[in-house]
Design a protein around this nucleic acid. Structure first.
Length: 599
DNA sequence: GTAGGGTTAG
């Protein structure tokens, strides 16, 4: 009788399984691989049935690795290890599928046991097993063990392009992007996965310009690329704020045979939003044949960072009309839109509405948004109440939002208390020290400012340097606070000084309240002049003409003084200036900013 | 069946 002659009754409960099993036993079919696999697949779904599965395997007349292998991938490592022990005790040898199934989820100690097994079985030269072991060490944060295995000589491993790519990707994930780059450069052969791994590695490290360099290098070799590489390139442009480069990637995709799938298109929508070209993002979004949840979220979030709160809300309603249910990200984006425009009552309304209507359980980030919404608006008591009433302990982000609000509204007492708490929770984050020092400086408490600075020194927390990127005629230039290394540096400096002199004549007054040094006012003003966005704007003025738009992307938040100065510059020099800071867009035109000074 | 892509407050 053939195995398929028994009609496959659906198995949904354990009693059904037992009935089915006894029927198979009567027919003498219980050991047939296809039936046994089906029984095991059901039993593996719940740990309470594992002893049953173990009995079935232990008494199988002709056990085969193919019966065990599917369990290894579906069971938690602890149970998988028990079944491996059973397998070895039969004794049954693992095959070439066994280790690749076991290794991806293996914690370190299990991985090293499997390493020993790999050597014993002489699977060292089996690329799949060997690469899975490399990946397991990397996944456990052990680049050292992976490197030793990779470079090992006895017995010499079979390295293929996947081994190299596994190392590159794994080291990038561990933050060892420079080591990964060395490996990447040494690769004997690269495929598109390798190129993409290196590009995404730089993206994860926030080194978008390096990511784009690798992308350029790939294209210079005449390689065609695919949707993955294209998406990564677009994401790199998004991170860098490089609109012209992003548009160039867009053209490259259209000229090549790369298919514009939903992920790629959504990445482009995001790129156009975050590079300041919302209209193009909108066109692409509207043209999407199918709009996934992520696409809606991207577009709503894009409107939010541009301060277009009403448009974001309108789009949310359109989303509802098209029967797309929002998720927790949608809610974050909606609340951000409201928070950044001071629309407190709308924020409160949509929070309640979305949570109730769609059954979204408010998470930490939503409480953070609400704290931000109230705090930014100066309703610090409301913000504190959100924290008191939330069902969990506030995390660093929620407290950070409250702290940020204290900084905006110069709430020195509360801010100091929250600031220290936030610093204790995340002592390596330089931004919090700087914020606290600024807050104390604004109250003239120089001794305490010095205390904060000393603590930063003791803990070896460097202040993150301000960096601004400006793209001129497709060329991406980066400026760093306080340092100029550009062929035109003298001209840029002279321009920066001219620029400040001219806007002063128009009424600009330097705002030195954010300078945390106890130095003379003149020295404070000079230190402001070195801010990276001012240098980038000065460079932009040299290279553009009145009526042009400049786009600047910076890594930190724009300071009060730069914000004020840029408003004047936009009017006096007749330029539109878009600045994307860490949080949002500022669109300066005719002496005003799109944020209406609410940020 | 070991390597790679889109959204999220501060």
């Amino acid at each position: 009788m053939s195995a398929t002659s028994v009609s496959p009754i659906p198995i949904t409960t354990i009693s059904e399984l037992k009935q089915h099993h006894s029927q198979l036993v009567r027919l003498g079919l219980a050991s047939h691989p296809a039936h046994a696999r089906r029984l095991l697949a059901f039993l593996a779904r719940d740990p309470v049935h594992l002893p049953y599965a173990a009995r079935l395997l232990a008494h199988h007349p002709d056990p085969h690795p193919a019966l065990f292998n599917p369990l290894f991938a579906s069971l938690p490592p602890r149970h998988a290890a028990a079944f491996l022990a059973l397998m070895l005790s039969l004794p049954l040898h693992p095959d070439h599928f066994t280790l690749p199934q076991l290794l991806p989820a293996a914690p370190l100690s299990f991985a090293s046991q499997l390493h020993a097994l790999l050597l014993k079985l002489n699977f060292h030269s089996h690329a799949h097993s060997f690469n899975a072991l490399l990946a397991a060490y990397l996944a456990n944060g052990r680049a050292d063990l992976a490197s030793r295995l990779f470079g090992g000589s006895s017995p010499s491993p079979a390295l293929d392009v996947v081994s190299w790519t596994t190392m590159v990707g794994g080291m990038c994930r561990l933050g060892l992007v420079d080591d990964a780059r060395e490996m990447f450069d040494a690769m004997p052969e690269r495929n598109l996965v390798s190129w993409n791994s290196m590009i995404t590695g730089y993206i994860k490290a926030g080194r978008f310009l390096h990511a784009l360099e690798v992308f350029d290098q790939m294209r210079a070799l005449g390689l065609e690329g695919n949707g993955f590489v294209a998406t990564s390139a677009v994401v790199a442009c998004t991170g860098a704020g490089a609109l012209a480069r992003g548009m160039e990637v867009h053209r490259w995709v259209e000229q090549s045979r790369i298919k514009m799938d939903e992920k790629l298109a959504t990445a482009m929508v995001d790129m156009y939003c975050k590079c300041g070209y919302v209209e193009e993002a909108w066109r692409m979004f509207q043209a999407l044949p199918t709009k996934g949840l992520t696409s809606w979220n991207c577009m709503i979030g894009g409107l939010a960072v541009h301060g277009r709160c009403k448009d974001a809300i309108q789009l949310f309603h359109q989303m509802e009309r098209e029967n797309m249910a929002p998720d927790d990200v949608t809610l974050v984006n909606l609340l951000t839109a409201c928070a950044h425009t001071g629309m407190v009552s709308d924020g409160r309304h949509y929070y309640n509405y979305v949570v109730q209507r769609y059954g979204i359980e408010p998470k930490m980030e939503h409480y953070g948004c609400m704290v931000d919404l109230f705090g930014r608006a100066g309703l610090l008591d409301e913000a504190k109440k959100v924290i008191e009433d939330m069902p969990m302990e506030p995390d660093i982000g929620v407290l950070g939002a409250l702290f940020g609000a204290c900084k905006i509204h110069r709430e020195v007492d509360l801010g100091e208390a929250v600031g220290w708490r936030v610093i204790d929770l995340d002592p390596q984050n330089s931004g919090r020290y700087v914020l606290l020092a600024n807050l104390l400086a604004s109250a003239g408490r120089w001794e305490d400012v010095a205390k904060v600075r000393r603590l930063m020194d003791e803990r070896n927390v460097g202040k993150e340097a301000g960096r601004s990127v400006i793209e001129i005629e497709g060329e991406v230039c980066e400026f760093q606070c306080g340092s100029l290394c550009h062929p035109q540096e003298k001209d840029i400096f002279a321009m920066a000084e001219d620029m400040m002199r001219e806007i002063r004549l128009e009424g600009y007054m330097p705002d030195t309240s954010d300078v945390m040094h106890d130095i003379s006012d003149e020295a404070k003003e000079t230190s402001l002049l070195y801010h990276s966005e001012k240098l980038a704007i000065a460079f932009g003025l040299l290279r553009t003409k009145p009526g042009d738009t400049m786009r600047i992307t910076k890594n930190l938040r724009i300071c009060r003084d730069c914000h004020e100065a840029t408003k004047f510059i936009s009017r006096v020099f007749e330029r539109e200036i878009m600045v994307r800071d860490r949080n949002r867009f500022h669109h300066f035109k005719d002496g005003m900013c799109s944020c209406k000074d609410y940020w």
